[in-house]
Amino acid sequence: MTAILELSGLTRRFGGVTALRGVSFAVGEGELVALIGPNGAGKTTCFNVIDGTLRPDAGAVRFAGARIDGLAPETIARRGIGRTFQVASTFGSMTVREGIAIAVAARERRDGRFASGPLATHSAAIDGLVAAAGVEALADQQCSTLAWGDAKRVELALVRAGSPRLMLLDEPAAGLEPDARRILMREASALARSEGVAVLFSEHAMDVVFGFADRVVVLDRGIVIADGPPSAIRASATVAEAYLGTPIPAPDATGAGGGVSGPAARGSAREPRQG
């Protein structure tokens, strides 16, 4: 399998705190990779470095063979990396359909046009994305009023509108009911299987991690402490220690309690918090 994403020696500091130190791993085409680790391990920082929100202090990010570290987020997005945020972020003042339409326009490089007529909000592509996300009933609802789970689905549709070759999903299952999280993850894995889209997701819910990942990368205090197939990770003593000596529970034993609990039940149009 050829690597679509390669991180080598990524280091990022915030003042005196080193959030990432020498992080290296790769994601193959069509592969589902879980990035796990305790809170503060550096998962979100890692995502932010990959998508260009943060610049690494050292190291390199290669996407499809080309260096992308130091590029602007929008440039990286246009190369084919899409992402979601821990707190699902949508365009609060727009309807679901309008939001998806603008994401489609951005992919087609039409987002800057102001002399070519109004934004088309009805097209096969948009309808397809609305249907794929299962939000037909919400298509004309304003995003700021979406429930937490619906906002996550809509955000995923926004990401898919960009036709990414790699999706970064930051805690996709957090705050979702078990059924909802399974549906969401099945969608993501179907995408990986059928269209060859690579997925890198961070997650606390172990049922999700071990139920869906092809491979698991474990971060602890900014260092990759393990990288391998789910079975090997579950058996790893190092990983168990990183999780404060707690043995990693079996997938079907976790249920809703295995993940971190999500914030309030209502979706938010606010900006995701960085860091």
């Binding site: 997005a77 603008i102 951005a106 800057g112």
Partner: peptide
């Protein structure tokens, strides 16, 4: 009219959620 062109929507998208907008490839 401009407010409802792709540019107008992009501008509001950038106001609503700048990071989301950039992650969607909006400059």
């Amino acid at each position: 009219a401009i407010a409802f062109t792709p540019f107008g929507y992009t501008l509001r998208a950038s106001r609503d959620a700048p990071l989301r907008a950039r992650a969607s490839g909006i400059a």
